[in-house]
Amino acid sequence: MGEKIVGWSVPIIPTLLLVSCVAAAFATNGWDAKATLFAEDPAKIAESLAGFGPAAGSELFKLNDYTISGDRVVIEIEINSPVNVSATVEELSFDIGVGDSTSTIALPAPVIIPAKGSASLNLEGALPDSHAISDPQDLQLMGSGNPEIRGVKMKIDVAGIKLEIKESGAELGGDTR
Protein backbone atom coordinates (compact mmCIF):
# COMPACT_ATOMS: atom_id res chain seq x y z
CA MET A 1 0.00 0.00 0.00
CA GLY A 2 2.83 2.34 0.91
CA GLU A 3 4.56 1.57 -2.34
CA LYS A 4 1.37 2.33 -4.26
CA ILE A 5 1.05 5.73 -2.66
CA VAL A 6 4.71 6.46 -3.29
CA GLY A 7 4.35 5.17 -6.85
CA TRP A 8 1.67 7.69 -7.82
CA SER A 9 2.89 10.61 -5.69
CA VAL A 10 6.51 10.64 -6.95
CA PRO A 11 5.64 11.76 -10.51
CA ILE A 12 3.08 14.31 -9.29
CA ILE A 13 5.51 16.38 -7.23
CA PRO A 14 7.61 17.83 -10.12
CA THR A 15 4.42 18.61 -12.03
CA LEU A 16 3.06 20.41 -8.97
CA LEU A 17 6.34 22.33 -8.67
CA LEU A 18 6.16 23.53 -12.28
CA VAL A 19 2.50 24.47 -12.09
CA SER A 20 3.08 26.30 -8.79
CA CYS A 21 5.93 28.30 -10.26
CA VAL A 22 3.90 29.30 -13.32
CA ALA A 23 1.02 30.32 -11.04
CA ALA A 24 3.45 32.29 -8.87
CA ALA A 25 4.70 34.10 -11.98
CA PHE A 26 1.20 35.31 -12.76
CA ALA A 27 0.35 36.02 -9.12
CA THR A 28 3.44 38.20 -8.57
CA ASN A 29 2.54 40.24 -11.66
CA GLY A 30 -1.07 40.90 -10.75
CA TRP A 31 -2.36 38.16 -13.10
CA ASP A 32 -1.47 40.45 -16.01
CA ALA A 33 -0.45 38.24 -18.94
CA LYS A 34 1.59 40.93 -20.69
CA ALA A 35 3.49 41.92 -17.54
CA THR A 36 4.12 38.25 -16.79
CA LEU A 37 5.47 37.54 -20.27
CA PHE A 38 7.57 40.70 -20.64
CA ALA A 39 9.36 42.51 -17.82
CA GLU A 40 9.28 45.70 -19.89
CA ASP A 41 7.04 46.91 -22.68
CA PRO A 42 8.41 45.28 -25.88
CA ALA A 43 7.98 48.54 -27.81
CA LYS A 44 10.13 50.42 -25.30
CA ILE A 45 12.77 47.69 -25.43
CA ALA A 46 12.88 47.90 -29.23
CA GLU A 47 13.13 51.69 -29.05
CA SER A 48 15.95 51.68 -26.55
CA LEU A 49 17.85 49.09 -28.57
CA ALA A 50 17.42 50.99 -31.83
CA GLY A 51 18.28 54.26 -30.14
CA PHE A 52 15.66 56.16 -32.04
CA GLY A 53 12.33 57.72 -31.21
CA PRO A 54 11.36 59.88 -28.25
CA ALA A 55 13.34 57.70 -25.85
CA ALA A 56 16.56 58.44 -27.67
CA GLY A 57 16.86 61.99 -26.37
CA SER A 58 19.50 64.15 -28.06
CA GLU A 59 20.56 63.94 -31.70
CA LEU A 60 23.01 61.29 -32.75
CA PHE A 61 25.29 63.68 -34.58
CA LYS A 62 25.68 67.37 -33.87
CA LEU A 63 27.97 69.87 -35.58
CA ASN A 64 29.52 71.96 -32.83
CA ASP A 65 31.85 74.22 -34.72
CA TYR A 66 34.10 74.56 -37.70
CA THR A 67 37.18 76.74 -38.12
CA ILE A 68 39.36 77.66 -41.01
CA SER A 69 42.95 78.55 -40.36
CA GLY A 70 45.27 79.06 -43.28
CA ASP A 71 44.87 76.03 -45.49
CA ARG A 72 43.39 73.81 -42.80
CA VAL A 73 39.76 73.36 -41.90
CA VAL A 74 38.74 71.70 -38.63
CA ILE A 75 35.20 70.51 -38.02
CA GLU A 76 34.08 69.50 -34.53
CA ILE A 77 31.27 66.97 -34.40
CA GLU A 78 29.62 65.58 -31.29
CA ILE A 79 28.34 62.02 -31.39
CA ASN A 80 25.81 60.86 -28.82
CA SER A 81 25.62 57.10 -28.42
CA PRO A 82 22.13 55.66 -27.85
CA VAL A 83 23.36 52.18 -27.00
CA ASN A 84 24.46 50.79 -23.67
CA VAL A 85 27.80 49.48 -24.96
CA SER A 86 30.91 51.34 -26.03
CA ALA A 87 31.51 52.00 -29.69
CA THR A 88 34.61 52.98 -31.64
CA VAL A 89 34.53 55.30 -34.62
CA GLU A 90 37.44 53.84 -36.56
CA GLU A 91 37.17 56.00 -39.63
CA LEU A 92 35.08 59.03 -40.55
CA SER A 93 35.51 61.24 -43.55
CA PHE A 94 33.41 63.36 -45.81
CA ASP A 95 33.78 65.96 -48.51
CA ILE A 96 32.84 69.60 -48.11
CA GLY A 97 32.41 72.08 -50.93
CA VAL A 98 35.00 74.84 -51.09
CA GLY A 99 34.36 77.21 -53.96
CA ASP A 100 34.43 75.06 -57.09
CA SER A 101 36.42 72.32 -55.42
CA THR A 102 35.84 69.84 -52.66
CA SER A 103 37.98 69.14 -49.68
CA THR A 104 38.11 65.84 -47.82
CA ILE A 105 37.85 66.10 -44.07
CA ALA A 106 38.81 63.05 -42.00
CA LEU A 107 39.19 61.81 -38.47
CA PRO A 108 42.91 61.50 -37.73
CA ALA A 109 42.60 58.62 -35.23
CA PRO A 110 39.89 56.26 -33.92
CA VAL A 111 37.70 57.65 -31.16
CA ILE A 112 35.92 55.62 -28.49
CA ILE A 113 32.37 56.62 -27.57
CA PRO A 114 31.42 55.42 -24.08
CA ALA A 115 28.19 53.52 -23.46
CA LYS A 116 25.23 55.93 -23.51
CA GLY A 117 27.78 58.71 -23.66
CA SER A 118 29.09 61.23 -26.13
CA ALA A 119 32.38 62.11 -27.70
CA SER A 120 33.75 65.04 -29.68
CA LEU A 121 35.37 64.26 -32.98
CA ASN A 122 37.73 66.77 -34.55
CA LEU A 123 37.95 66.14 -38.25
CA GLU A 124 40.67 67.87 -40.19
CA GLY A 125 41.38 68.46 -43.79
CA ALA A 126 43.44 70.58 -46.12
CA LEU A 127 41.77 73.14 -48.29
CA PRO A 128 42.55 73.05 -52.01
CA ASP A 129 45.66 75.12 -52.81
CA SER A 130 43.70 77.83 -54.58
CA HIS A 131 41.65 78.40 -51.45
CA ALA A 132 44.42 78.50 -48.86
CA ILE A 133 42.89 81.66 -47.38
CA SER A 134 40.67 82.22 -44.44
CA ASP A 135 37.51 83.18 -46.28
CA PRO A 136 34.65 81.26 -44.76
CA GLN A 137 32.36 82.55 -47.52
CA ASP A 138 34.07 80.18 -49.91
CA LEU A 139 32.91 77.27 -47.79
CA GLN A 140 29.69 76.08 -49.33
CA LEU A 141 27.03 76.43 -46.71
CA MET A 142 23.56 75.04 -46.70
CA GLY A 143 20.53 77.13 -45.77
CA SER A 144 21.10 76.30 -42.10
CA GLY A 145 24.55 77.83 -42.22
CA ASN A 146 26.31 74.49 -41.82
CA PRO A 147 28.86 73.16 -44.31
CA GLU A 148 27.38 71.12 -47.12
CA ILE A 149 28.65 67.63 -46.59
CA ARG A 150 28.90 64.97 -49.25
CA GLY A 151 30.34 61.50 -49.56
CA VAL A 152 30.22 60.48 -45.90
CA LYS A 153 32.29 57.39 -45.20
CA MET A 154 32.24 55.90 -41.75
CA LYS A 155 33.49 52.74 -40.11
CA ILE A 156 32.18 52.09 -36.65
CA ASP A 157 32.67 49.16 -34.29
CA VAL A 158 29.81 48.59 -31.88
CA ALA A 159 30.78 45.92 -29.37
CA GLY A 160 32.47 43.86 -32.08
CA ILE A 161 29.91 44.45 -34.84
CA LYS A 162 31.54 46.40 -37.65
CA LEU A 163 29.43 48.77 -39.66
CA GLU A 164 30.62 50.58 -42.76
CA ILE A 165 28.51 53.37 -44.18
CA LYS A 166 29.00 55.24 -47.43
CA GLU A 167 26.59 58.00 -48.29
CA SER A 168 26.46 60.45 -51.15
CA GLY A 169 25.18 63.55 -49.34
CA ALA A 170 24.05 64.57 -45.87
CA GLU A 171 23.67 67.51 -43.55
CA LEU A 172 24.64 67.47 -39.93
CA GLY A 173 22.39 69.13 -37.37
CA GLY A 174 23.85 71.72 -35.09
CA ASP A 175 24.15 75.39 -34.23
CA THR A 176 24.42 77.80 -37.09
CA ARG A 177 27.25 80.30 -37.38
Binding site: C21, A24, A25, A39, V83
Partner: peptide
Amino acid sequence: ILGNGVTSPLFEWFCLG
Protein backbone atom coordinates in the same frame (compact mmCIF):
# COMPACT_ATOMS: atom_id res chain seq x y z
CA ILE B 1 21.33 42.92 -26.16
CA LEU B 2 23.55 46.00 -26.54
CA GLY B 3 24.01 46.19 -22.79
CA ASN B 4 20.30 45.83 -21.99
CA GLY B 5 19.02 42.71 -20.25
CA VAL B 6 15.93 41.11 -21.76
CA THR B 7 13.86 39.19 -19.23
CA SER B 8 10.53 37.44 -18.93
CA PRO B 9 9.10 36.84 -15.43
CA LEU B 10 7.11 33.82 -16.66
CA PHE B 11 10.19 32.23 -18.14
CA GLU B 12 12.23 32.94 -14.98
CA TRP B 13 9.62 31.32 -12.76
CA PHE B 14 9.32 28.35 -15.15
CA CYS B 15 13.09 27.89 -15.01
CA LEU B 16 12.90 28.00 -11.20
CA GLY B 17 10.35 25.19 -11.38
